[in-house]
């Protein structure tokens, strides 16, 4: 098997709120992402999925654990060299395209900021060309570079967000709920665009979302999070046809389906989260790629 692009080992992310209160957002999560694949991270609100994305790209300092990206160790202290490599090769698409673009900057400068910092062009003309190309790739036109974010609709802004990530030619893009703020008819456009880009540039995605039908559609492998623990991970096929963890089963039983006949006869599987303590669980292997968290007994 090929070497993983990203290897997260026992990641913990705790936030100290006050002297005697710590939020344990992520508790010992391990997973791998291979080059060119899409790994979906799902879970309810508060399960830690966004935190994991932000810890990996080092918007937070992980409390414990090891993150290896592209053979660099990117947890702990970062040397300047590794930091630059990390920033170039890993990019993020944020949830809300209304608030993640600087309203005082032109689209061209928002997209070009990474190029400026990493000095990835030799002349202004080249910079313009790179930006124009990337705008075309995401379905906008090079002329849009002179405009400001507020002149665009939500879907177009998310395209800018994608262009901004893509211009660095990253190996991994973290997409944190990148379609949930968009209108339904726009969501399909953006997802199709992300798939096209992946087949063209072979970048990997960490696709963080709560919408399971979309995650299933876009992901190769999926990790299910609950209360800061990874309870199950496997290929999309394995998770959806053979969910092993009771939490995954209850989550899948609740996914709304656009088919009234199915919807009206559906049985919910309930899951009582208070009964289990994930602290005393270990991951057990079911198949080559399918792991589930089970209590130690």
């Amino acid at each position: 098997m090929t070497e993983p692009l990203l290897k997260v080992e026992n990641l913990r992310q705790h936030f100290k709120i006050s002297r005697n209160f710590t939020v344990k957002a992520v508790n010992g999560v391990s997973f791998e992402i291979y080059p060119g694949e899409t790994y979906g991270l799902v879970g309810e609100s508060g399960s830690g999925k966004t935190t994991i994305g932000r810890s990996i790209i080092r918007l937070y300092d992980p409390t414990d654990g090891e993150i290896i990206f592209n053979r660099d160790k990117i947890s702990g202290e970062l040397s300047d060299k590794i930091r630059r490599r990390l920033r170039k090769n890993m990019q993020m698409i944020f949830q809300d395209p209304m608030s993640s673009l600087n309203p005082r900057k032109k689209i061209g400068d928002i997209i070009g900021e990474g190029l400026d910092i990493h000095k990835l062009y030799s002349s202004q003309k080249e910079r313009r060309n790179i930006i124009g190309e990337i705008l075309k790739k995401v379905g906008l036109s090079p002329a849009h570079a002179e405009r400001y974010p507020q002149q665009f609709s939500g879907g177009q802004r998310q395209r800018v967000g994608i262009a901004r990530a893509l211009v660095m030619n990253p190996k991994l893009i973290i997409a944190d709920e990148c379609i949930s703020a968009l209108d339904v008819s726009i969501q399909a456009q953006v997802v199709n665009l992300m798939k096209d880009i992946q087949s063209e540039t072979k970048c990997a995605y960490l696709f963080i979302a709560h919408d399971l039908s979309m995650v299933k559609y876009i992901s190769d492998r999926i990790g299910v999070l609950h209360k800061g623990y990874l309870v199950e991970t496997g290929t999309t096929q394995e998770i959806f046809t053979n969910p092993a963890h009771p939490y995954t089963q209850s989550l899948l039983s609740a996914v709304p389906q656009p088919n009234p006949a199915v919807e009206k006869n559906r049985k919910l599987i309930s899951y009582d989260a208070d009964k289990v303590s994930y602290e005393n669980c270990t991951m057990r292997q079911i198949s080559d790629s399918h792991f589930v968290s089970v209590p130690n007994d």
């Binding site: 609709s153 008819s185 969501q187 997802v191 199709n192 039908s213 299933k216 656009p258």
Partner: peptide, 20 residues
């Protein structure tokens, strides 16, 4: 079709171009 059903596979989603 913007909401893939659980059987939607690798095929592309039928999407409406543009915005409202």
């Amino acid at each position: 079709s913007a909401m893939p059903d659980l059987e939607t596979d690798d095929e592309r989603l039928y999407s409406i171009p543009g915005s409202p």
